[in-house]
Design a protein around this nucleic acid. Structure first.
Lengths: 185, 185
DNA sequence: ACTACTATTAGTACCAGCTCTTAAAAAAGG
DNA sequence: CCTTTTTTAAGAGCTGGTACTAATAGTAGT
């Protein structure tokens, strides 16, 4: 049953990926084989033992806890002149793309632009009222998106912000954001 | 040496908090006491053992990773008729709102609508080409947003999808998404 | 000095969840 | 049938502990 082994190992891999906190014993029960077989499989697939897996996950947490401020701004703000202009950078990583095509999902580019539009407003409250956006080129995993926001008009309670995002000087996204603002409330 | 004990326990607490991946043995060396003393201290301070500590940290990581937008669809899909219509639900929680005002950030509503527009397309590849959106009412933490997508026209390589999102039958967001589609590639 | 008490250390048995090794049984293929 | 692959078993050893018992050191009270 060569087939069975291969299939089991594939399943094993994805099972452990999905639920890394699983012991060999539980896996053995789930697949209807002995614990030894599971261990052989892990050996062949170079999957570390439970404790190592847990440690690894925890290590990531320790590493990223300080890097992830659950930001108000999506991407890294590198320039900000209130009511005038702002620039932010977003590195497209695995979590931003469709797993199949590796193309960035639109809402991440939107999020970067939108949060930049919010940040550039020099007021207590800034909310997006409407937006008109275009995705002009696909962005792939690994690319760095630079979003540039420019305030084009300030009216009573509305501000218009234009955001264009680039990868290597090439425009990939552009949008006009009508922002609602109010000092009170 | 009552004092010494108290001081050691305080130090122990902060040491473990700072570097949770430390064994009792290492701690014993660091404080110049026996391993048993460290264990007594942990017992008195209700500090769990190394493995439990690692597990705890990892568990947090796993929780946040799974809560983050790793999903292909933002929100929970509750109805899907390909190339026709789709409905999804998104509960607005703390991570979706501005911490100060508790108002949902626009890009989350956009993300829900956009990913719904992508999902309703019956094709290999579906990308947002452009969108025209309006935020018609603020959405607050705790509210449930129901997004309804409707395919309005299918052309050569473009499909137009209209998405309107509601909270309690009241429209909070609406958008027209021009989607690029292609069976090949 | 004797006693009481706390703090520390030591030692033993046990546990989960493994690794590593040797070996035998079972299944599949030629 | 024999060979090879796959699976299972059995045993020793490891880490980092828990739980429990007991001995020892130090300190204070009377």
């Amino acid at each position: 049953m060569k087939r069975n082994k291969q299939e089991r190992q594939k399943l094993l891999q994805s099972t452990i990926e999905g639920t890394p906190f699983i012991t060999d014993e539980e896996l053995a029960k789930r697949f209807g084989v002995s614990v030894q077989t599971i261990r052989l499989d892990r050996l062949e697939l170079s999957i570390p033992e439970l404790r190592e897996r847990i440690k690894h996950v925890a290590q990531q947490q320790l590493d990223t806890v300080k890097a992830l401020p659950l930001e108000e701004v999506i991407g890294e703000m590198i320039d900000l002149q209130l009511d005038e202009a702002a620039i932010s950078i977003l590195d497209i990583q695995r979590e931003h793309v469709f797993s199949r095509t590796k193309i960035a999902r639109g809402h991440h580019l939107f999020a970067q632009a939108n949060s930049l539009a919010v940040a550039v407003i020099n007021d207590e409250l800034a909310l997006t009222a409407s937006a008109n956006i275009r995705f002009t080129r696909q962005v792939k995993e690994g690319e760095r998106v630079i979003a540039k926001a420019r305030v084009v008009s300030i009216e009573e309670a509305r501000t218009t912000v234009e955001v264009t995002s680039y990868v290597d000087k090439e425009a990939v996204f552009s949008g006009e954001f009508i922002m609602y603002r109010s000092t009170g409330e």
